[in-house]
Design a protein around this nucleic acid. Structure first.
Length: 554
RNA sequence: UGGGCUAUAGCCAAGCGGUAAGGCAACGGAUUUUGAUUCCGUCAUUCGAAGGUUCGAGUCCUUCUAGCCCAGCCA
């Protein structure tokens, strides 16, 4: 689809290619394997892989596994699955840990150039010595150790002679820099931890600020694209590449993170929702994780188009969730079979229809996509309709069923409401209607018109089904109101109690054979996905992906 | 209050000295066997504010204002 407007990173790449700075571009998607991917990562994926595709370049999938205490193989597997599901293929799959030997050598080079030193200060002391946003830092008393002593100490760090936290390797830059990242950043720490890839080979691990530029340079990455919070790390990134005398000089470019209304995106908050049981797991359909969106029924195409249309800039804005929803409807419109499902059933007896008679009616599978063909659906004396489609005392402009009113049953006949039956509590539990055989769909009947068309399911062959209806987990308005009222509150206090609503209804008989992830449009409701975990042939479970739009207001 | 970054409609976003693209939302109207879809139309005399340069400024200069990020041995 060609609706991309330009963005600053694409413009830079275009210039770099036109000027001959690069013949081929190489980007990378560098997740840390310590959690599940969410739609914010999807944006990074689309940008990195998308730009490389566009300019015939390459993209590496590189796991930034420099902190073994947090990382795990489980996450690398899920990340690979998510990237592929989103529709992208990496050129090489790599690990930062592949370069630990090379990084170690470059650290020694820094020591030899008197650009790095081993520091014995504790973590707390280092923090104190760093100064503050407005005050310069102080130099560590260990800052001017000899090259020989530093070399010896660093080797012994590597050999495991020191405990976690007892020593670090620091870059020697400038303790009075206004950029805190340049105040002698730690580049190696001691960690006696089992690494998912290198096992117990290493007792020291490089820090992100040292490792990342080296990884990019080693792989020949031309454009290292990340989010804006890394902007003040760029001088350090460039320092590392230069001082480590790397042959390739990658450039870092930063774009603004994706935020979506009524959605929490931070890994920490998502983890809280999972750990504290507010949701079913990382793939709960209410979660903005890639696995959650997949289970909900969002398609890769919709996610990609959404990301492209929101654009790439350095602003930190918040996109309305309506925009994401728009792109799912757009994608599913021609793909999803249109069928009838009753979420909240109300029985209707068609009193003048012969008892025991069943007729088969033709129904188009998707009027906007005739290639999807037609199907046959049964019709008989008893059907279910939606409770909402009957009102005893309707307001003006209510086009559905009420005493004496006639409507069209989709694909079938006109029916007229003759009487309604209530239970002891006053709830309407059954309708008696009459039908007009003249008005059968497809016969071209033009004798009279009705204002409303409602959907229905034949009661004798209806398949019981579960529908899971979703609302946002967090509503921004409520959260903001609470925050502004000054009360002490966290987002967890405002998890929407209606975020999941489960109802039991019926679907057409031919829905018996649905498979996981089949997607349908239930007429007048919305798009639904067959839940891959809980759906069974006896009792299909449908997740609401997104409702149809509606201009009807009661 | 040190440094970095950002500011174009309700939201996202193009724009690169020549007179404000596009998408979402909203609102009219037509078509409709989904109150959907589709179609057609409306929606920034003005670009955070104020000055200045220029024949001409969203684009250049100055000052101001607001918002975001940074003091992990996380990434």
């Amino acid at each position: 689809m060609e609706h991309n407007s330009s963005n600053f990173i694409r413009n830079i790449i275009k210039e770099d290619i036109e000027s001959g700075k690069h013949k081929e571009i190489i980007t990378r998607f560098p997740p840390e394997p310590n959690g599940y991917l969410h739609i914010g990562h999807a944006k990074s994926i689309v940008i990195n892989f998308g730009l490389a595709d566009e300019f015939n370049g390459k993209t590496n999938l590189r796991f930034d596994d420099t902190n073994p205490s947090k990382e795990d193989q489980e996450y690398v597997d899920s990340i690979k699955e998510d990237v592929q599901w989103l529709g992208f293929e990496w050129d090489s799959m790599l690990y930062a840990s592949n370069y630990f030997d090379e990084m170690y050598k470059r650290a020694i080079l820094l020591i030899k150039k008197e650009k790095a030193y081993v520091d014995d200060l504790t973590a707390e002391q280092i923090r104190e010595f760093r100064g503050s946003l407005t005050e310069p830092g102080k130099e560590s008393p260990y800052r001017n150790r000899s090259i020989e002593e530093n070399l010896d100490l660093f080797e012994r760090m590597k050999n495991g002679e020191f405990e976690n936290g007892s020593k670090v390797l620091r870059a020697k830059i400038d303790m009075s820099s206004p950029n805190l990242n340049l105040r002698d950043p730690v580049i190696y720490r001691v960690s006696h931890a089992e690494h998912h890839n290198t096992g117990d080979k290493w007792c020291i691990y490089p820090m992100y600020d040292f490792a990342h530029p080296l990884e990019d340079a080693i792989e020949g990455i031309t454009h290292s694209i990340c989010t804006t919070e890394f902007e003040d790390h760029r001088p350090l990134y460039d320092w590392v590449v230069a001082e480590c005398e790397m042959e390739n000089v990658p450039r870092q470019y930063e774009f603004g993170r994706l935020n979506i209304t009524n959605t929490v995106m931070s890994k920490r908050k998502l983890k809280q929702l999972v750990d504290e049981g507010y949701v079913d797991g990382w793939d709960d359909p209410r979660m903005p994780t890639v696995s959650g969106l997949r289970r909900r029924g969002y398609t890769p195409e919709a996610i990609r188009e959404f990301v492209k249309e929101t654009g790439v800039s350095k602003n930190s804005g918040t996109v309305e969730s309506a925009m994401l929803e728009h792109f799912v409807r757009e994608d599913l419109k021609l793909k999803a079979l249109r069928t009838m499902g009753i979420l909240r059933p109300l029985k209707v007896v068609i009193t003048n229809y012969p008892e025991g008679q069943v007729e088969m009616l033709d129904a188009e599978n998707n009027p906007e996509n005739p290639e999807m063909g037609t199907r046959q659906i049964p019709f008989s004396r008893e059907i279910y309709i939606e409770q909402d489609d009957f009102m005893e005392n309707p307001p003006k402009k209510y086009f559905r069923l009420f005493p004496g009113n006639e409507v069209r049953l989709k694909h079938a006949y006109f029916i007229k409401c003759e009487e309604f039956i209530k239970d002891e509590e006053g709830n309407v539990v059954e309708l008696h209607c009459t039908y007009d055989p003249e008005t059968k769909s497809g016969t071209g009947f033009t004798g009279r018109k009705v204002k409303g068309t409602i959907h229905w399911v034949d009661a004798s062959q209806a398949v019981p089904a579960e529908f899971r209806l979703y609302e946002p987990l967090i509503k921004d308005e409520e959260l903001e109101a609470a925050e502004q009222s000054g009360e002490e509150t966290t987002f967890l206090d405002h998890v929407n109690p209606n975020s999941l609503q489960i109802v039991q209804g019926f679907v057409e008989p031919n829905m018996k054979d649905v498979k996981a992830h089949d997607k349908f449009q239930f007429f007048r409701h919305g798009y639904f996905n067959v839940d891959p975990k809980n759906s069974t042939p006896e009792k299909p479970v449908f997740n609401l992906i997104v409702s149809l739009k509606s201009s009807f207001k009661l």
